[in-house]
Design a protein around this nucleic acid. Structure first.
Lengths: 146, 146
DNA sequence: TATTGTTATACTCTATAACTATA
DNA sequence: TATAGTTATAGAGTATAACAATA
């Protein structure tokens, strides 16, 4: 018995649903990125936080959270892990805020992560040979704003 | 002090990342659908399961899971909830499989959910005025296959 | 009065391992 | 040997409420 006889495909009324396909496609890319970043001991969330701090030295923890859609409470253990690993430093900004910057170890990690992410993105973009990649990004921005 | 002075936007090096924008766009649509389905006492996951059973009467629980990317173990409480709510019925198929079908209450729920999903999808598709909607779906399929 | 950072907490989602019964 | 259904469990991710210190 062949595999496709053993598991006949179900009729899928969700094939043409934007929200559903967005979710499944996102899951595929997230899982791939997670596998690729694991050897660096980074999760996709940690990598995006490091990238954002690298591009915005002196930013606050809440600012990072607002930008990434992660709420303040959930930023605490994420930043704590990056501090513990020596990738991020805090410096008092005013009495309540702390300015975040990357350490040199953090900068090295970000560069390694960026190289991995670049390859990962290029691999998926290559699958979109027909469609316009910029139009896809523009569509995703429009959906986010909706 | 205006709001944008209080929360200056951070420089965002993720603006142009396919995987990241996919994830954020997906989260926006999922949150919207969750809000819209809540009055029906349905989660997006339950709605997609009902839709799939409705389109494939007699399918198995594992078949639904394979199609939706939900593993067998996690299907158990999902199907149990739909059985308890009287929306799905099980009938012995062979000694180990159960054929799933919708009850009349389940069919009514699916129809109500489909109406909500249709409006939700139409609202987001309207935001994509410039770009080709079919090209977007095709791109998402290509990413899923990658 | 609003914001930052924090703690505690709870709920959902996802993943794995192991088991029984059946094919 | 592989599949269906199940149980138990653990780890993420996400959400809210509340608090202290500060603006």
């Amino acid at each position: 018995m062949t595999a496709d006889q053993a598991f006949p495909q179900l009729t899928d009324p969700l094939e043409n649903r934007l929200g559903y396909q967005l979710r499944r496609a996102s899951a595929v890319m997230m899982a791939d990125l997670g596998r690729l970043l694991a050897p660096l001991d980074l999760t996709p969330a940690e990598a995006t936080i490091l990238i954002l701090i690298g591009a915005n030295p002196g930013c606050s923890q809440s600012g990072v959270g607002r930008s990434l859609g992660i709420n303040r409470a959930n930023m605490v253990p994420l930043i704590a892990a990056l501090l513990k690993q020596g990738m991020v430093e805090k410096a008092p900004l005013d009495g309540r805020s702390q300015a975040l910057t990357l350490t040199s170890a953090g900068r090295a990690k970000v560069e390694a992560a960026q190289r991995i992410i670049d390859k990962h993105e290029a691999r998926f973009q290559a699958l979109l040979h027909g469609s316009n990649r910029d139009a896809l990004i523009a569509a995703l921005h429009a959906i986010r704003a909706g």
